[in-house]
Design a protein around this nucleic acid. Sequence first.
RNA 1: CGGGGUGUAGCGUAGCCCGGUUAGCGCGUCUGCUUUGGGAGCAGAAGGUCGCAGGUUCGAAUCCUGCCACCCCGACCA
Length: 488
Amino acid sequence: MSKDITSRADDYSQWYIDLVRKAGLADYSAVKGCMVIKPYGFAIWENMRDTLDRMFKDTGHVNAYFPLFIPKSFLSKEAAHIEGFAKECAVVTHYRLKNAEDGSGLIVDPDAKLEEELIVRPTSETIIWNTYREWIDSYRDLPLLINQWANVVRWEMRTRLFLRTTEFLWQEGHTAHATRDEAIDETRKMLDVYATFAEEWMAMPVIKGVKTANERFAGAEDTYCIEALMQDGKALQAGTSHFLGQNFAKAFDVQFNTKDNTREYVWATSWGVSTRLMGALVMAHSDDDGLVIPPRLAPTHVVIVPIPKPTPELVERATAIANDLRSKGVRVKIDTDDQNRPGYKFAEYEKLGIPVRLGLGARDLENGTIEVARRDTKEKASVDITTITDHIVKLLDDIQANMLERARAYRDEHITPVDTWDEFVRLLDEKGGFLSAHWDGTGETEELIKTETKATIRCIPLNNPQEAGTCIKTGKPSTQRVLFARAY
RNA sequence: CGGGGUGUAGCGUAGCCCGGUUAGCGCGUCUGCUUUGGGAGCAGAAGGUCGCAGGUUCGAAUCCUGCCACCCCGACCA
């Protein structure tokens, strides 16, 4: 076990914090609730971002950028929207500082008060829809498929590295469509993009579903989501895609001329994922020795460690191997540090979650072998050095697949059908994970269950089988099971 | 916003209750030697406004007052 990381069994929450900090993903900053994303963490985020960006563009979207500040009046135009965000907005009231008369330092200049306060965006629907009014006149202007990479601020009362910080990075897609069906298709399409990304890149299986009214995005008609399961049995909402109906079009008066020369409000979607995915990645795969990063997102795939120390001969040999690997698209680092000993380096690279470590020493040169250690299973093998490139290329695919498989097996074991309230309460504490149970469909019952157990309805899975049953809590009739869990 | 905790070297901490030499220890850093296939050893060295501001006292990291900051738990949330 790692020297400086709390074990999951001892304190899961502390384990997560230790990992994020000790592996160099992020750190606390001088600003309450805000974190510094360190180079290694940012490199992983860049890989996520670049991949998603490509996927958005492949589905016809383009990037744009809208202001950080939103006039207060914009936010109040959509009633449900402001209801949801008002309590967590940072507000700019002045635009100048000055030296205090009594020499006590800088103060806000009372003469520099803004006519209208500016809100630091918690999300950009309002500023974007205000802009779309100018951009959309005709059905020929539709669909409008725009994405923005940005930072947003939500003044949460309690924060947690990556999972919930005051400022966070994300992307927000905002699209406008001529018809309801087309907007719903878009909402679902982007949900699929997120699910594909989570599974194929993050090796994290997710459940696609729709939120109940209580859990819906403020201002949406429907909120679709992908829900993932963390190793402590808690669920994590990893991405959302909202069908906004005509709510924002009406609030910002965005109408267009149809082919038939009628005037109609446009239909909207918005969808987003954030740096929260970093937290999900950590909690889905990592272990007591450190991070375990899926190869497709790892900044470094392979590290070559000359043993016991880098001699010219070993480095030359390592460089040849590295160059061959790089020609196959493998990201390789050669450890040329001559201070630390191999054991120390092994532990460090395991902490960083680098998928494959190669050990190359005099013994290997003699035997024509190289030691291959994989991070996900911690298995080590001695491999014929002449076949190492092909071996690694295949191994990286194996690791990616194995990580997904392992996470999926854990997830599947933790979806438990439950039919009685006693069992529901017991399993929440003893097993965790998703509990598949009947629910009477009312917000009141959902709220009651949440108050009593802290479990929420994570989603109603898409293509959910319909079956008659009775609500786990009230015994009233129900037509389908929904997924409950305690969540981050 | 409620409850709890912490603030001493780059990091982690002891000392505080019960005031008294030069604020101790571990990690890390630097130098040297020996080591080196799973977190090396020995020797030496550098590194401190004890969170900030007042107060009590011959004397304050320690006692008193006020302030600030951050973390953790809960309610709110991506």
